[in-house]
């Protein structure tokens, strides 16, 4: 077969593909920025269709319109925003406290073999304890109020930051340290100009995980230490009164907040670590 016939054959294959009526359904025809919306949109349509066509009479589910009405009502009375603000404030305070202490501890463990020997074994034992196993202790020590919740959140944020900043500092390549020695860097210069930037990707991973864990723990804390305001309390109320619209609204709000936190963190990461470049691997 000559090259020209191969080309002709290939062209006809392409031609027949182009004519297929199914080609409009191929996911690749969806513009890239919209692809992530496909599954949420399908779920919403399914949800709407469930009531539109009367597929269920269950008390355990509500129509999309009911949830929307509840959302509008709760936001106009301010209840939704108050709950959200209370949860976010708690999340932020716990995250900041836990991360800062985590950075200090992780940095100390990473920079000092002596401290690693002293603190390391205790830390590695404590981190094995399930986060929720701390709740009884925390509620006894701090009560059921905000102090207890923030303490729990701080704990959730603390562990990933310690682990990743420790790991990041310990895996700074010896080659970089030698470059710093060749240029007669002081210890401070070595730490601020070599160790810190080299460890930053790993430290960032820790902070990023802390952000996610803290938000997860916010809900856990509000659910288990039930007092005061919060999205978690909204969920608890909904469950206790059998208000499915409350429950589903709560779940959606929690998801949206998580998504936004994730998005902010990845923007910050992309900016801070722009020197890493973008992976161009294709499979």
């Amino acid at each position: 077969m000559t090259a020209s016939t191969i080309n002709t054959n290939l062209a006809s294959v392409n031609e027949s593909n182009r004519k297929s009526p199914l080609r409009y359904l191929h996911p690749a025809t969806i513009p890239k920025p919209l692809r992530g919306w496909v599954i949420p949109a399908l779920l919403l349509i399914l949800w709407w269709a469930t009531y539109r066509f009367g597929w269920t009479q269950s008390q355990l589910f509500v129509p999309i319109s009911k949830v929307w009405e509840t959302a509008v009502r709760l936001s106009s009375t301010g209840e939704l925003w108050q709950s959200l603000a209370a949860s976010l404030a708690r999340d932020l305070v716990g995250f900041v406290i836990g991360s800062l202490i985590g950075l200090l501890v992780g940095g100390a463990l990473g920079l000092s073999r002596l401290l690693e020997d002293l603190i390391g074994p205790t830390f590695h034992t404590l981190k094995q304890i399930s986060l929720f196993a701390w709740i009884p202790l925390i509620s006894l020590w701090f009560g059921l109020g905000d102090a207890a919740k923030v303490a729990f959140l701080a704990l959730a944020a603390f562990f990933p930051v310690v682990l990743n900043s420790f790991e990041g500092i310990r895996s700074v390549p010896r080659e970089y340290i030698e470059v710093a020695r060749v240029f007669a860097y002081s210890r401070t210069q070595l730490l601020t100009r070599v160790v810190l930037p080299a460890a930053l990707p790993s430290i960032f991973t820790g902070v990023y995980l802390a952000l996610i864990y803290a938000w997860l723990a916010t809900l856990g804390a509000e659910y288990l230490l039930t007092s005061g305001l919060g999205i978690g309390n909204l969920l608890t109320d909904g469950r206790e009164h059998f208000w499915m619209d409350y429950v589903i609204l709560g779940v959606i709000v929690v998801g949206i907040v998580g998504f936004l936190l994730n998005w902010i963190a990845s923007r910050v990461e992309a900016r801070l670590l722009r020197w890493r470049g973008r992976s161009v691997a294709q499979f």
């Binding site: 470059v179 060749v182 007669a184």
Partner: peptide, 20 residues
């Protein structure tokens, strides 16, 4: 004595700092 700015070195790997 030790390293000094009056001696410069090029290593086999470039050892550039990727963040700079």
């Amino acid at each position: 004595v030790g390293t000094s700015l009056d001696r410069g070195i090029v290593f086999q790997e470039h050892r550039l700092f990727p963040w700079l």
